[in-house]
């Protein structure tokens, strides 16, 4: 989604969110006003399939231990393997509800995609998948949280912006990809100065595996500091895995995982 569209959606939503707190407090994942706006914006009057948790489900903590980095997992069942071409993740009650839009490479048997997200308050977290035959599937989970979007940056530790870490499991079917980046939400306060920090976030991540598209991610401020995605496939993920990413200030980052080492630290091709 372009930033101009995102801004329009945000503007429309902000009015809803202002008076929408009463119904937002109730755990009714599909009845929220924010969602109705998002749904009509992205999907018009198209129907969603019957809820079938075996096809796809959203896993998230009912009450998050860490609102600034809440784990959300999308699980795809056997019937969905290679049949999902796009999936979009929403957090209804976040100031920017569209977390990410993922285009999944053709015939990639992805069984799970994990995110770490900021959750600002109690909300439905929902995924909408578009299948290769043009159908829509929607699943959701309810998460209680407070203040994930305004939590101050952790910021500690080693590494510099644009460093990339690849972490596979031993069987090669799971790969966690992390990009060192503040991913400022625009709702945080600088702990050194007390001033608000402007948004600055990873906006695009493209992964290939063995020369084929694996997943292409458009992301925003609801993704946690140091954006991290974990891809689990039904088959070992083919090396080399390449990452190309860019952020909202048009800096570019790239890295390659050759399958041998645990880590591949990128030369940050930043263009600040």
């Amino acid at each position: 989604m372009s930033r101009s569209i995102r801004r329009r959606v945000l503007a429309a939503l902000s009015a809803t969110l202002l008076f929408g707190s009463a119904f937002a407090a109730e755990p009714v994942p599909s009845a929220g006003g924010a969602w109705q706006l998002l749904r009509s914006h992205f999907y018009g009057t198209r129907d969603f399939g019957e809820v079938d948790e075996a096809f796809m489900h959203v896993e998230a903590p009912g009450s998050t231990p860490d609102p600034a980095a809440t784990p959300v997992a999308l699980h795809f069942g056997d019937a969905a393997l290679g049949k999902v071409k796009q999936v979009r993740l929403f957090i209804d009650n976040n100031p920017s509800p569209v977390v990410a839009t993922l285009d999944i490479g053709a015939n990639q048997p992805i069984s799970e995609i994990d995110f770490r997200v900021r959750v600002d308050r109690a909300t439905a977290v929902r995924a909408v998948a578009e299948t290769t035959d043009g159908k829509l599937e929607m699943r959701s989970a309810w998460v209680r949280a407070e203040g994930g979007c305004s939590a101050p940056p952790a910021g500690s530790g080693e590494g510099k912006t644009g460093d990339v870490r690849f972490r596979p499991t031993e069987d090669g079917k799971s790969l966690q990809v992390s990009i060192r980046h503040p991913n400022y939400s625009g709702f945080q306060i600088d702990p050194k100065t007390g001033d608000p920090i402007p948004p600055h976030y990873v906006s695009h991540v493209k992964l290939t595996a063995g020369g084929k598209a694996l997943v292409d991610i458009e992301s925003g401020i609801s993704i946690s500091e140091n954006p991290t995605f974990r891809i689990v496939s039904d088959a070992p993920i083919a090396a080399p895995v390449t990452l190309e990413a860019s952020d909202s200030k048009d800096a570019h980052f790239s890295a390659t995982w050759n399958g041998a080492a645990q880590r591949a630290v990128a030369a940050a091709g930043g263009t600040h």
Binding site: P65, D66, S156, G157, R180, N226
Partner: peptide, 14 residues
């Protein structure tokens, strides 16, 4: 759980 989450985020960039 909160402590572990913060430790994880601190240590994953070692």
């Amino acid at each position: 759980a909160h402590n572990v989450s913060l430790v994880y985020r601190e240590l994953e960039w070692e």
